[in-house]
């Protein structure tokens, strides 16, 4: 299975996402923001970073870049799309996911090993997790505060679209501790924490041994064994 990773100018964790796909057993495909060609990939990741410097609003300029027209089109037809951190911000700016992401409530960039609860396993990217599973995934962002108006929030909760929730500590003031979302169809998922940094023992967050955490790997495995969408 071929999984594409889009590189925008200012993407930072693109190579990490490619590595995660490889470690999960998929075939990583590098895609360039300026192309109109998804090269026939079976799934797509929009990686972390600071696309175009994130100077206007995070993800805002990337959401209007050439390749995004194809991405939006494909996502609407059911292509699995995962947005990580800046990628989540891009998906929100592109209106593939609801709500918005604003400056962390404490005002600074934060990097920490973050505990999450998997709230929804009926997606292309979470189907190999257990419902309610507690996982530790590195978080690193300056603008990860999830906001939405009351009505949207009610709908997200009512329809069970909240996919990941912060546990123990809410690191950025996100409403309802929301760390990640899915769309109604379940093919598009976005989250602020970085699963691609918890896929290789020795280079992940501390777990039972130093840096041994690999809780993020299941996200990349899920899309390879995607049973949800083929149902």
């Amino acid at each position: 299975m071929r999984v594409g990773v889009i590189t925008f100018p200012g993407s930072l964790d693109d190579r990490d996402a490619l590595r995660a796909v490889r470690l999960a057993g998929g075939e990583p495909v590098s895609l360039w923001h300026d192309d109109h060609d998804l090269q026939g990939v079976d799934a797509l990741i929009i990686p972390g970073g600071f696309s175009y410097g994130d100077y206007l609003r995070c993800g805002a300029i990337a959401a209007h870049s050439p390749i995004m027209r194809e991405v939006i089109d494909a996502a609407n037809k059911g292509l699995p799309v995962l947005g990580i951190c800046n990628g989540f911000q891009v998906l929100v700016e592109a209106h593939l996911l609801d709500g918005g992401l604003i400056r962390n409530d404490h005002g600074t960039f934060i990097r920490r090993d973050q505990k999450l609860r998997v709230e929804n396993v009926d997606t292309a990217w979470t189907n190999t997790y257990e419902l309610g599973q507690e996982i530790t995934i590195p978080l690193k962002n300056g603008e990860g505060g999830f906001i939405a108006d009351d009505e949207t929030l009610k709908r997200l909760e009512g329809e069970g679209l909240v996919t990941f929730r912060y546990l123990d500590v809410n690191p950025n003031g996100s409403l309802n501790d929301i760390a990640g979302l899915r769309n109604a169809r379940g093919n598009v998922v976005g989250l602020m924490p970085h699963p691609e940094h918890a896929v290789e023992a020795g280079f992940g967050p501390d777990a039972d041994r130093m840096q041994s955490g690999t809780d993020g790997l299941a996200m990349f495995v899920s899309v390879l064994t995607d049973t949800v969408l083929s149902k």
């Binding site: 930072l12 964790d13 190579r15 990490d16 590595r19 972390g48 600074t108 960039f109 934060i110 990097r111 920490r112 590195p138 690193k140 970085h194 691609e196 940094h197 290789e200 280079f203």
Partner: peptide, 9 residues
Amino acid sequence: NQYDYYVMG
């Protein structure tokens, strides 16, 4: 805590 040490993997 304000520095990213994960990037690049």
